[in-house]
Computed example of a mutant assay.
Amino acid sequence: MRGEYKVPGGKLVAVELETADGRITEAFVSGDFFLEPDEALEDINAALLGLHTDAKVDDIAASISQRLPDEAHLIGFSPEAVGIAVRRALGHASRWEDHRFDLIPPVTMDPRMHVALDEVLAGEMARGEIGPSLRFWEWDRPLVVIGSFQSYRNEIDDEGRERHGIDVVRRITGGGAMFMEPGNCITYSLIVPASLVEGLSFQRAYEYLDDWVMGALAELGIRAHYVPVNDIVSEKGKIAGAAQRRLAGGVVLHHVTMAYDIDADKMLEVLRIGREKMSDKGTTSANKRVDPMRSQSGLPRDQVIEAFLSHFEGRYDVSRRGYTEAELAAAQELVDTKFSTKEWTHRIP
Rank of each mutant, 00 (worst) to 15 (best):
H255M: 13
L134R: 08
D70Y: 02
Y208E: 14
G83E: 14
G183S: 14
I232A: 02
S65E: 15
G128R: 05
I60Y: 07
G131K: 13
V13E: 12
S63Q: 10
R100C: 08
E129L: 09
S201D: 04
K236A: 06
S310N: 15
P142W: 07
L121G: 10
E18W: 06
N184G: 03
A85D: 11
R245L: 06
R321Q: 01
L247A: 10
R320Q: 01
R321I: 04
F34G: 00
E4K: 15
S63T: 07
G237P: 05
E181I: 01
S295C: 12
E155M: 07
G160V: 01
R204M: 15
Y188A: 11
G31K: 06
D167C: 05
A14T: 10
E36W: 03
A177N: 09
P193R: 11
K236V: 00
E269V: 00
I191C: 06
A20R: 12
D336C: 05
A240E: 02
V290Y: 13
R246D: 07
S279N: 02
D231G: 02
K238F: 05
A55K: 04
D98V: 14
H52P: 07
A331L: 09
L121V: 12
L268R: 03
S133M: 12
L117E: 01
M178A: 15
W137E: 15
T108M: 04
I130G: 06
V145A: 08
D167I: 02
I146C: 10
P8T: 09
G176N: 13
H311W: 14
S78Y: 10
T337D: 03
D167V: 05
